[in-house]
Nucleic acid binder design. Structure first.
Lengths: 184, 184
DNA sequence: GTCTATAAAATGATAGAC
DNA sequence: GTCTATCATTTTATAGAC
């Protein structure tokens, strides 16, 4: 359908601008301009700018976990998969200019909105459980118990990505990976 | 001087609103309204809204390290001081509604601005070196070398605070502290 | 130095033609 | 469903009186 193409183009453009520039600094004008669609077409597909934001978050969440699972699928051991979590996110940051986690970013801008807040929590909690699942499959004895190791990996990775946005590089995420390596 | 009082009130109000609501969502109108000053008074003391933002970042940076040093001063061992870093930041988050690190927040909104970007880097780098200095003073043997332990503490703490903003609690920062406890 | 009044531009959103 | 024209607000910033 032709309508889908327009809707996708709106969402693609908005997603890129929301992440690259920020949500509030991105105006409707710029979105319709860069997506090359009419003003009212946007409001035909999305009820409001907030609605567009929620669609962006939902799609980002879905794509994020799909890409993650595709990346880990070829790996055989859970240890390799845990280490690949870092490579996955470092690679994504490299490709998108080190602007950090989408959900950390939007928390800083629009977390007063309850619908946004809920989506952020769901995303991060799912990732935490994803890690926990992998940790429980590892056979080796660790110096930390399963829950502590899960928390450590999660915290080190989130800290590394957040600092990566503040320094515009992946050094801290790489350091986080090395620390996890010594904890496994 | 009377002028200083006005200037301080502008900066106090702007700082509160920038952190609580966000930078872009806070308009000049709201600042002059809540600070109860005239429109032109703001532009008499600050050249632009960006200038006000930079003043906010500079003052936050200065106050942050002064409070940190005051908090750690009564403690005798560097081990206690390292653990108190977590308490310091958890307490600050508790008192300010869990909106996370000021510098992480502004990175998400205005890191394209080179002057903002520089201040964020300086703040975080100074904190990293602050941690490193304490780590080097600890006498016990660690399972990680000094640099790795410094990175681990830094990453775990930053991760914990960032997640605290996303979940609006201090659970992850508390977990980070416990993990550091087992690493020391 | 502080004030009020105002400017020029951009904001999110809607009406109505096709 | 897509379009152009337009709405009422709000934005940052300035001019000029006191």
């Amino acid at each position: 359908m032709k309508e889908s193409i327009v809707k996708d183009r709106i969402l693609d453009t908005a997603s890129r601008l929301f992440y690259d520039q920020g949500y509030h600094v991105t105006g409707i004008n710029q979105i319709i301009d860069e997506a090359d669609i009419a003003r009212a077409s946007l409001y035909n597909h999305f009820a409001s700018k907030t609605d567009l934001l929620l669609a962006y978050l939902d799609r980002t969440h879905d794509l994020w976990f799909r890409e993650l699972e595709n990346t880990l699928a070829p790996l055989s051991t859970s240890r390799d998969k845990l280490l690949a979590l870092f490579d996955f996110r470092i690679q994504r940051q490299r490709n998108s200019g080190y602007r950090g986690c989408h959900f950390n970013k939007i928390t800083a801008e629009a977390s007063e909105d309850e619908a946004v807040f809920q989506r952020v929590k769901v995303h991060k909690e799912r990732f935490r459980e994803f890690i926990r699942h992998l940790v429980k499959q590892t056979w080796h004895r660790h110096m930390l118990d399963d829950d502590a190791l899960t928390d450590a990996i999660f915290l080190l990775l989130e800290g590394g990505i957040a600092l990566g946005a503040m320094f515009r590089n992946s050094e801290d995420a790489e350091k986080a990976k090395r620390i996890v390596l010594s904890l496994l």
